[in-house]
């Protein structure tokens, strides 16, 4: 593993026991400069992971708990009339920070979801004819409960596409859970900043400089093409999806301390990148569409 990444992963791993793979995936997404969606049942550590990432990367962060009565203004900010100056003054909302933790994004109304997702895509917001640039780097780590829970608003396809990756944490192993109960995990207060935003920028640059050779691109295209020609996939992957696969595969290779991408790198992130784009979650036979895709394309030759 890349020595620059090791301390980050180690620290988060101390708090979120036994989830190294997911931690690396999440980091990978941030290194590829993409937004992350964490989806799982309540209580498995979604919020913990996002907090830990924010603190470890030394980003200024705001946490927003999405509720059904939330309005876009609660997120973006609002203009208030200032009596002393006699003018409207814009009060910045929680979105103006380097990392936004959008908790339970599917609890709020589509209107508010849209406001957030627009900001994610454009990295700026427009209010009352004024355009405000969001901070740089700007990440959104959103969490959501599985959709079959009542009182939620499903994110539409186009907005899911804005998230580069969707990571599921899953239940911890018995060992890990036991250690957690034994009090081996460290608390949120004990987390330290490992790198600063400038270092993060360098890491991002390093990730983007990883090379992808022709056979790798061919493999990637074969994967994408498979979803387009096979009627098994109701939602074929878009070119934006193939860009996302390449960027995250490079970031993964960077985390693995390699200067080039291997087919294994693509395979490592494929499920996280494509699953929410292919949409179909519950497959017969227990194999998700992403896994099925991975198993149906030969990376060699």
């Amino acid at each position: 593993m890349n020595p620059l990444i090791v301390p980050i992963v180690e620290q988060i791993n101390k708090q979120l026991l036994g989830k190294e793979y997911q931690i690396k995936q999440a980091l990978c997404c941030l290194l590829a400069n993409g937004h992350l969606l964490i989806e799982d049942a309540p209580g498995v550590g979604k919020t913990t992971l996002s907090h830990a990432l924010a603190i470890s990367l030394g980003l200024s962060y705001n946490r927003i708990q999405f509720t059904s009565d939330m309005l876009p203004a609660d997120l973006l900010g609002v203009s208030i009339f200032d009596n002393t100056s006699g003018q409207f003054v814009f009060h910045r909302g929680p979105i103006f920070s380097q990392l936004v933790l959008a908790d339970e994004i599917n609890r709020t109304s589509p209107k508010t979801q849209s406001a957030l997702l627009e900001a994610m895509a454009e990295r700026q917001i427009s209010i009352d004819g004024e355009t405000y640039k969001l901070s740089d780097p700007f990440f959104v780590i959103a969490t959501q409960n599985p959709l079959d829970h009542s009182g939620t608003y499903e994110l539409p396809d186009s907005q899911l596409d804005r998230f580069m990756m969707r990571v599921s944490l899953g239940f911890p192993s018995i060992d890990a859970e036991k250690r957690m109960l034994q009090g081996h995990s460290i608390g949120l207060d004990n987390l330290k900043q490992v790198i600063n935003p400038e270092q993060l920028k360098e890491l991002q640059l390093g990730a983007s400089q990883v090379t992808a050779s022709d056979p790798i691109l061919n493999y990637l295209l074969a994967l994408v093409q498979e979803t387009r020609v096979n009627s098994k996939y109701p939602h074929p992957l878009s070119p934006r999806a193939s860009q996302a696969i390449l960027a995250t595969a490079k970031a993964w290779a960077f985390i693995e301390n390699r200067k080039y991408v291997l087919p294994e790198d693509i395979q490592a992130i494929l499920s996280a990148v494509v699953e929410h784009r292919l949409r179909h979650t519950n497959q017969q036979g227990g194999q998700s569409l992403g896994e099925h895709l991975l198993h149906s394309v030969n990376p060699l030759g």
Partner: peptide, 9 residues
């Protein structure tokens, strides 16, 4: 070698 397994794995 399963169909999807690449060289490293």
């Amino acid at each position: 070698r399963e169909k999807h397994v690449a060289s490293q794995d």
